[in-house]
Design a protein around this nucleic acid. Structure first.
Length: 353
DNA sequence: TTGATTTGACCAAG
DNA sequence: CTTGGTCAAATCAA
């Protein structure tokens, strides 16, 4: 269990650190010789990083709140706090998989409203790094556009229960409202994220090279531009969403470590000190909602997000226990379950080897 | 052939 | 009843 939060912390820290590094990058690009595109791109990436981090924090804060034992530790969740009793256990009466309907409801849910500035930028945030598989589409009453239903590609293999809904906004078709449900418990996903990040950074790198050498700004690079709203809607159930299957600690590592301009992260591990006290007790299920409009378009009136916290903690998510025994699960133990602390060797390539 | 998408049916909740 | 969410067979694509 704890390893999940470990992973999340790493990802979180990764995002924050990345944001910091990107900000540094941005600072160096404030001189007039740098192109506007570069700066825009950096801003996008920074916002994206912080947005991800905040999303995670909201989730973690919720978990901490819902489970008093962990509250003190907040997202830093001491391993012992959740150790003992896993709420699942019986799972005997789910003969039909029909009661996924019930269980779905208990998953955490949050919404991102993604504005797409250009057609190609569309993929910037709609493709969030996870691999999704569409499993349905439905016309929604009062909506001009159908809602698409996606679930994690690795659901069957790894029991990842994450799903998302994508709905195009009526008024502004460039806005997509993406509702996420559940956290990814799959292993591949984080790698994909990293891969993507790396990808985009490399693109930035290329971009910079191009600009420096041939002064040839390219539209494509800035089309990441999205306006992004995130609200945490339903943080119901403090139950263990991640039954017994957790991530290995690896994913954030291997690819990040290698290259590029953002002397990636973790090297200067003063991060812990900076964020732990501040984030321990964020206002949980309140309108944790932020909005940015990097495209400098007008803000759209999405500011009032009613939080309908329907927390029926009675529902227990019992993901297939079999997942625990999956081969992937072994990875779980291949890496030391160290308590995550500020000395976590992110910057040590060997750790991820 | 395998994996993803489409799409109508089905189910639960309200 | 209606509606939103999911399933699963058919279909498409690599």
């Amino acid at each position: 269990m704890e390893k999940t939060s470990e992973w999340e912390q790493k990802t979180l820290i990764n995002e924050l650190t990345q944001g910091k590094d990107l900000a540094k990058q941005l600072r160096t690009h404030l001189n007039p010789s740098s192109s506007n595109e570069t700066r825009k791109f950096l801003v996008e990436k920074i916002l994206s990083s912080y947005e991800k981090a905040l999303s995670m924090l909201k989730w973690d804060a919720f978990v901490g709140e819902a489970r008093p034992t962990a509250a003190a530790g907040g997202m830093l969740e001491s391993p012992s706090s959740l150790a003992g009793s896993s709420p699942r256990s019986e799972g005997s009466d789910r003969d039909s998989n029909r009661d996924v309907y019930k269980k779905r409801k208990t998953l955490p849910r949050w919404t991102e409203q993604v504005r797409v500035c250009s057609e190609t930028g569309l993929e910037g945030h709609l493709d969030d790094g996870y691999s999704w598989r569409k499993y349905g589409q439905k016309d929604i009453l009062g909506a001009n556009y159908p809602r698409g239903y996606y679930r994690c590609t690795h659901r069957n293999v790894q029991g990842c229960l994450a799903t998302k809904q994508v709905q195009r906004s009526d008024e502004d078709p460039s806005i997509f409202e993406i509702t996420y449900r559940g956290r990814h418990t799959c292993i591949l996903a984080p790698r994909l994220i990293v891969a993507r990040e790396k990808e985009s950074k490399q693109r930035l790198q290329q971009q910079q090279h191009q600009q420096e050498k041939q002064k040839q700004p390219q539209e494509t690079f800035i089309e990441f531009g999205t306006g992004l709203n995130v609200k945490t809607e339903d943080l119901d159930t403090g139950e263990k969403i991640f039954p017994s299957f957790t991530f290995p600690s690896t994913p954030v590592g291997s690819e990040i470590v290698d290259d590029y301009i953002f002397s990636q992260t973790m090297a200067e591990n003063n991060f812990m000190g900076s964020f732990s006290p501040a984030f321990i007790s964020p206002a949980t299920s309140e309108s944790n909602y932020f909005q940015v409009s990097p495209c400098q378009m007008n803000n759209f009136g999405l500011g009032n997000n009613l939080q309908t916290s329907e927390s029926d903690l009675t529902e227990i998510i019992s993901a297939p226990t079999s997942v625990t025994n999956s081969p992937m699960g072994d990875l779980d133990f291949s890496l030391s379950p160290v308590d995550f602390d500020s000395n976590f060797p992110f910057d040590n390539p060997e750790f991820f080897a």
